[in-house]
């Protein structure tokens, strides 16, 4: 930050950090991204989850999922590849093992859901709508690492329309559609999601990518290819947010390589209303809290009293 700040100067009674995603209000715009924060409880000993904007859990489908063979991740320059394969306990296992903890938090839990058919998406959405206490649903139509489901729905506008519409029909929970970056233009997908009743968009998911061990000549992932995340994708993600912002009115949650407040502010200026911390959770679990504090410092330094003023405030001339 350009101006010097001392601890304790952050608090300002007039400053508004809260943002809305449909009917859901977040105390601040910083959440943790699906797949990088488990089901919340795992990180509860390392940071105060109640200071976050929201916790977004790892993708859940109807039944348990074993996941892909190992190796499942590989470190690359300024990022990582993963092909976990959405391992998870299924709806019932999730509710049994993790829901009471998430429900006890003062911040909303956003449930990332997926399926292999339109009907399964709708059934999972209905189950979480009926559960009571869920903050919002994030529709994962963009995981690159499973053969059926996920990305196929995020790379065909007609299928995407059916998934969003089917979920919209069965629940009044705010719906967030997590769009795939693996398309020529994100705009038609953003428009379809908005038209079918999505309350917000998450942009972006991981980028299809590959790495090879040159000694063994084998791919570094058992799945051969995986999804690239981390700081190396940030400029591409910012551009996707910028593209979508000019096309739709609904809130956008920007994500892709955020490590610090400056990264998050860039997403807001490009058009995001909120942000999510992903890969950085793995190496610096306190990142989200540092980003919240840094955003407050920035607002104070620039005499901005409402975080919402930053959304799309990039200056083009």
């Amino acid at each position: 930050m350009k101006c010097g700040m001392r601890n304790g100067e952050r608090e300002s009674p007039k400053m508004n950090l809260s943002v809305s995603i449909g009917k859901l209000t977040l105390q601040n715009p910083v959440m943790v991204a699906s797949g990088t924060f488990g089901y919340g409880a795992e990180y509860a000993r390392l940071l105060d989850l109640n200071q976050l904007g929201a916790v977004v859990v790892k993708g859940i489908r109807l039944s348990p999922v074993r996941g892909n063979p190992t190796p499942r991740t590989a470190e690359v320059t300024s990022g990582m590849l993963n092909a976990i394969g959405l391992q998870g306990p299924g709806v019932d296992g999730f509710i049994e093992k993790y829901w009471s903890f998430l429900k006890s938090l003062r911040v909303p839990a956003i449930i990332n859901i997926w399926g292999t058919t339109v009907e399964e998406y709708a059934e999972v959405a209905r189950r979480f709508g009926d559960l009571g206490g869920v903050g919002a649903l994030e529709l994962n139509v963009s995981c690159p690492n499973i053969k059926e489901g996920g990305a196929q729905f995020g790379t065909d506008p007609k299928l995407l329309a059916r998934v969003v519409a089917a979920c919209r029909k069965v629940t009044t929970l705010p719906l967030i559609t997590k769009l795939s970056p693996n398309v020529t233009s994100v705009v038609p997908y953003a428009l379809v999601a908005e038209a079918e009743g999505s309350d917000a968009l998450s942009i972006t998911n991981s980028f299809p990518a590959m790495a090879i061990d040159i000694e063994s000549r084998r791919p570094k992932l058992a799945n051969v290819t995986g999804g690239l995340t981390g700081p190396c994708i940030k400029p591409i993600a910012i551009k996707l947010v910028w593209d979508a912002r000019r096309a739709v009115k609904i809130p956008i949650i920007g994500m892709g390589g955020i490590q610090c407040a400056a990264d998050a502010i860039e997403f807001l200026l490009a058009g995001a209303n909120a942000v999510a911390i992903g890969t950085a959770n793995f190496y610096e679990p306190q990142t989200a809290l540092a980003v919240i504090a840094g955003i407050q410092d920035y607002l104070k330094c620039h005499d901005i009293t409402d975080i919402r003023e930053l959304t799309g405030a990039v200056r083009l001339s």
Binding site: E42, R72, T73, N82
Partner: peptide
């Protein structure tokens, strides 16, 4: 810490 599911 149990969230990324790499080391399974």
């Amino acid at each position: 810490v149990g969230v990324c599911l790499t080391c399974v």
